Structures are given as structure tokens and as C-alpha cells.
Computed example of a mutant assay.
Amino acid sequence: MLKSCPEIADYAVDGIGNWRDFMATATQVRGYLGVSPSAYEDACHVMGQETAAIVIACILQRAQHINSAGGYLRVLTDKARVGEFSVGPMLMAALKANSATAGMTG
């Protein structure tokens, strides 16, 4: 997860050593991205807490390309509600984008 979306680790108070740390950090990042508590709670209810946290990490990773993080999360939540969203492809895209960026700078 952190290989796909490493930027979230910059926001962790004491690092990310487990899922609880990761989800707590995602909750913090949600606020920085301007995602409302209700949008995040809805995402957690529909997707599950772990998946919602992963989505927040992916949104953070691509924040410069996303006009409204809250709106984007709501769209993904609506898709998940009807079974049209899976976090796997989102993670793979983030991993590929991060690998390409790392390759350009290294």
C-alpha cells in the first residue's frame, strides 16, 4: 500500500506500522484534502474503513490532478454502492504512476 501511495506516510504522526496507524492517518488527511466528515463516513460505511482509507491515500497521491477530493470520493462511493468500484485497479494505477515517477527522478 505504501509503495503505491507513499505520500500519506508524510502525514503520520508516529509513522505507519499497522492498519490502525494507516486508517488514523487517512482520517487526518481527509481533512487536509477538504473531504467532509460526512463524505468520509459514507465511504467507510459503503466501502469499509480499510478501503476508504486506501482511497484517501490514492486521492492524496494524485491531489494535484483532482479538482474536488470530496466530490471524487462521493462519486467513488456511489459507484461502490452499486458494485461498480474496486480499489484494486486504483492501487495498481497509483503503483504504476509512482514507479514511473521514481524512475524519472532516480
Results as ranks from 00 to 15, higher is better:
Met1Glu: 12
Leu2Tyr: 06
Glu7Gly: 07
Glu7Asp: 14
Ala9Leu: 15
Ala9Trp: 08
Asp10Pro: 00
Tyr11Ile: 12
Ala12Asp: 08
Val13Phe: 09
Ile16Glu: 06
Asn18Gly: 14
Arg20Met: 07
Arg20His: 11
Arg20Asp: 15
Arg20Phe: 04
Asp21Lys: 07
Phe22Met: 11
Ala24Met: 12
Ala24Val: 10
Thr25Trp: 05
Gln28Ala: 06
Val29Gln: 07
Arg30Tyr: 00
Arg30Trp: 00
Gly31Cys: 10
Leu33Met: 14
Leu33Ala: 14
Gly34Cys: 06
Gly34Ala: 06
Val35Gln: 04
Tyr40Asp: 03
Glu41Arg: 12
Glu41Val: 08
Asp42Leu: 10
Asp42His: 13
Asp42Pro: 00
Ala43Arg: 02
Cys44Val: 03
His45Arg: 14
Val46Gly: 01
Gln49Phe: 02
Thr51Trp: 02
Thr51Phe: 04
Ala52Ile: 00
Ala53Gln: 06
Ala53Tyr: 08
Ala53Val: 07
Ile54Gln: 13
Val55Glu: 05
Cys58Gln: 04
Gln61Lys: 13
Arg62Trp: 07
Arg62Met: 11
Ala63Asp: 03
Ala63Gln: 12
Ala63Glu: 09
His65Asp: 14
Ile66Gln: 13
Asn67Glu: 14
Ser68Phe: 06
Ala69Asn: 08
Gly70Ile: 05
Gly70Asn: 12
Tyr72Gln: 09
Leu73Ile: 04
Leu73Tyr: 01
Arg74Ser: 15
Arg74Leu: 15
Thr77Glu: 06
Thr77His: 05
Asp78Met: 05
Asp78Cys: 06
Lys79Leu: 15
Ala80Thr: 04
Ala80Cys: 03
Val82Pro: 06
Val87Tyr: 05
Gly88Ser: 03
Leu91Phe: 00
Ala93Pro: 00
Ala94Leu: 01
Lys96Met: 10
Ala97Leu: 04
Asn98Trp: 01
Ser99Gly: 13
Ala100Thr: 02
Gly103Pro: 01
Gly103Thr: 05
